[in-house]
Nucleic acid binder design. Sequence first.
DNA 1: CCACTTATGTAGCTGTCGCTACAGATGTAG
DNA 2: CTACATCTGTAGCGACAGCTACATAAGTGG
Lengths: 235, 235
Amino acid sequence: MKPLVRKEQVPHTAQSRDIGRDAGQDLGRDIARGTGQARPITMGRPREFDVDKALDEAMEVFWRHGYEGATIAELTGAMGINPPSLYAAFGSKEGLLKAALDRYSQKRNECMAEILDAPTAREVAERLLLKLADLQTDPQNPPGCLLVAGGLACGVGSENIPFELAAHRAQTEDQLRERFIRAREEGDLADDSDPAALARYLSAVIAGIGVLASGGATREQLREVASVAVKAFDE
Amino acid sequence: MKPLVRKEQVPHTAQSRDIGRDAGQDLGRDIARGTGQARPITMGRPREFDVDKALDEAMEVFWRHGYEGATIAELTGAMGINPPSLYAAFGSKEGLLKAALDRYSQKRNECMAEILDAPTAREVAERLLLKLADLQTDPQNPPGCLLVAGGLACGVGSENIPFELAAHRAQTEDQLRERFIRAREEGDLADDSDPAALARYLSAVIAGIGVLASGGATREQLREVASVAVKAFDE
DNA sequence: CCACTTATGTAGCTGTCGCTACAGATGTAG
DNA sequence: CTACATCTGTAGCGACAGCTACATAAGTGG
């Protein structure tokens, strides 16, 4: 597992436990950021594959097999590239996961915007859970949620993966907490309610739905779960 | 990954997708069942390690690192035995996991008995969630729940692991559904309530708590989640 | 044209994975 | 005692994991 550095090398193995950061220090040019903006103008041979398309494929592999279950061979196969291209663009398997997670969260945040626009806290919860019930049983992609199925517990040498996933999950919880704080200020939620607890509760239900979906639950079953879950907002 | 059978051998690699079953066909004598009953009397050299103690150690390793993240070396190290002893007793890494899961479920069912004895459905839910909030943050064992952290998505060659875990999770859901059906018959739950949906909802919250715990949530935070979650039973 | 920079494909490296052959140890059955 | 059956430790098997050296291709800037 030890990165087997032969001579010496820029230590991009520096155990960056700090999770909020972007991908590691630039090695090569810059760790390809899959934000889709046309690359300004660069020197050297241009990249021949579309980073975002490749990330979508990698995301699917991680999603279906988890971080440790996804092999470089399978990833490169799905991405349509060879290992050196992967390592030049993303630095490492972990770097690739981080990039895929960023892209995953980005897509997720697009949905979140309109969900958070719902007029009441209860309606935010309802829209969110129903939306996720649909997304996590969409035959278009693997069942469940990448942020849960990616790996809650990993072997030695991949200890930060679970942290990475947890950090991305926390984003949603943060957004919900902020929204519920606002809801309380607006009188939508009772004064004695606890926005943080509500957000954490929803975060748990979201994760739970992801687990059920991974286990093969149907869309209708998850929708029922959502219906029951929002009752907690009715007092 | 392919089990690399050299000559020929009893095909205990038979992809036993049927999840309800016991460990594979007997190879050697019998796949050690960790039920603790004194082994009646047997021939050959007696086993020198305590199967249940060893299973407890293996359980902890799977719990902390997941199925794929747990290596044979780490497992045998924790169990205090060498690989041949492991394989003689449990057949394979997957067989060991199954045995550990059975032991996990067994312990869990002991708790469940008194929880299901609670007088009302709501109280069942409350006791259960609070109990799990405590268990999953018990510093005695890894955070979270083995049935969730063990692996929701695995690589090729370990496809049945997630099914295995899901089957064990379903046990709890089944128990809850039965209990809630009884609750409705007793008038404790409304006639128009859906015991299956309530059980599935609770199952989701349980899994969600496991995910939060894996991510480092504190006991108090999980207890708050439990408090919010049971409100869904208040109508 | 020539330097320089970066991406690509082939081939292969080292470490570790799950697992096992084998010989010796330790029990029961007769 | 001799057979037989099973467990245990040492040592190591083949397969594959993540990753990279190297030569070549394909761009930029002068």
